[in-house]
Design a protein around this nucleic acid. Structure first.
Length: 404
DNA sequence: TGCAAGTCAATACC
DNA sequence: GGTATTGACTTGCA
């Protein structure tokens, strides 16, 4: 393989055979073969001598990438060329359609990603750099279609149904697996609006419920405890992700927000989206007011982090929660929060000197009493101090020069 | 053991 | 038919 699309070529081979089998083969990492990943001449991705490196090594060595710019460009290319997320995901990224959709719609800032999480972005970047990437993917599409038609034809001639020929494994309840065995798969739980509402309310009161609370919730809602546990895990995770996007918007940087609103906000603003908390959180207003963070009407989403910060704010200037938020502004060009020069707390100063109504302080409104105001000012000053120091550190390229 | 991160895959939605 | 959503699962970490 000599280009980032090498995996796509491998998958073409897979698709030419059994599409169900190719699913797994195409999901293998892109350039596992150490001989793969030959660098394109003049590649903009500064991966010195990455030829011969595994994708993991390339990711580890990769400089910071602008995940928003990358996903934006990928979306453009896919749309312009009428290429689907499934094809792109399975052949280029080794991910399923749903994951691709998620990645493209809500890319995390580079510095918030783990090595594994960075991998798809490196693959996307390499793919974008390949001048023949689209061409190759189009070829793949044609081959896939051809293979599908071939199978369809042979299935019809055999008198068999063509169901599932291309759409992947179908192990739904009662369906036949490719091996001919009857496989019973658990039906997917679909939570009703009332159940979701109840869970959200529970989350607002306690984002980290005790096992006892989980038990109670489960029995009250007639759900399995594992479902409730999973729901809390997923909700926290997704709220956190929404927060990243909010941070970008707050920083006014590149990203979904600069294009007329992040997808996440649809959920927030509508009050319906499950990927974001659409309900007011009276129980945690204090927390957010105390923070005075310049995060727009994030309501429950802020609470998650807000609670952490609330518990840490008075303890240490370098509390993990504070650093976690603040370092969002350190990523440099193209990243989420640092571009404004003020980071995500760019409005914090304002909030510390004027009423909340003129700031981005969430829907909780102005502080309720002077004590709240003082507390908020104190915390805002604290945060600004941290921002200042981190920004100073970030301005130095050499990590050894960083001052914390 | 509990959590976060990442992902899958069923299903809702357009 | 393609995309978005989301419950469930896996993995790694503290």
């Amino acid at each position: 393989p000599e280009s980032p699309l090498s995996s796509a070529e491998e998958s073409v081979n897979g698709l030419a055979g059994d599409p169900l089998a190719s699913q797994s083969s195409s999901l293998k990492p892109l350039s596992e073969d150490p001989s793969g990943g030959e660098s394109q001449p003049g590649t903009p991705l500064p991966l010195p001598g990455h030829s011969g490196l595994s994708i993991q090594e390339m990711v580890a060595m990769s400089p910071e990438l602008d995940t928003y710019a990358i996903t934006k460009k990928v979306k453009e290319v896919l749309t312009d060329n009428n290429l689907g997320q499934r094809l792109f995901g399975e052949t280029i990224l080794g991910l399923t359609q749903g994951s691709v959709s998620d990645l493209l719609a809500r890319p995390k800032p580079w510095h918030k990603l783990s090595l594994k999480g960075r991998e798809p972005f490196v693959r996307m970047q390499l793919w974008l750099q390949d001048p023949h990437s689209v061409e190759k993917l189009m070829d793949m599409k044609r081959l896939e279609k051809k293979a599908y038609m071939k199978r369809r034809l042979s299935s019809l001639s055999d008198g068999h149904s063509v169901e599932g020929v291309l759409s992947g494994p179908d192990y739904m309840q009662g369906s036949q697996s490719p091996g001919g065995q009857q496989q019973l798969k658990k039906a997917r739980v679909v939570l009703g609006p009332e159940e979701k509402e109840a869970l959200k309310k529970a989350y607002q009161q306690k984002p980290y419920p005790s096992p006892k609370t989980i038990e109670e919730l489960a029995s009250q809602l007639n759900l399995k405890t594992s479902t409730v546990i999973n729901w809390f895990h997923n909700y926290r995770s997704r709220i956190r992700r929404e927060l990243f996007i909010e941070e970008i918007q707050a920083a006014g940087g590149v990203g979904p927000g600069s294009e007329g609103g992040s997808p996440s906000l649809r959920g927030c603003k509508s009050g319906e989206g499950d990927s974001c908390d659409g309900t007011e959180s009276e129980g945690t207003v204090e927390t957010r007011q105390g923070l005075g963070i310049g995060l727009e009407d994030h309501r429950g989403a802020c609470k998650d982090q807000g609670m952490e910060v609330e518990s840490e704010a008075g303890a240490s200037n370098n509390s993990p929660a504070q650093l976690d938020c603040t370092t969002s502004g350190l990523a440099g060009p193209g990243s989420s929060c640092g571009q404004s020069g003020l980071g995500i707390f760019s409005l914090t100063e304002a909030s510390s000197t004027s009423s909340a109504s003129s700031t981005n302080i969430p829907s909780s409104g102005p502080a309720r009493n002077p004590r709240d105001n003082n507390l908020r000012k104190k915390k805002a000053a604290n945060l600004n101090n941290i921002i200042h120091r981190l920004e100073k550190a970030a301005s130095k390229e050499d990590p050894s020069e960083w001052e914390f």
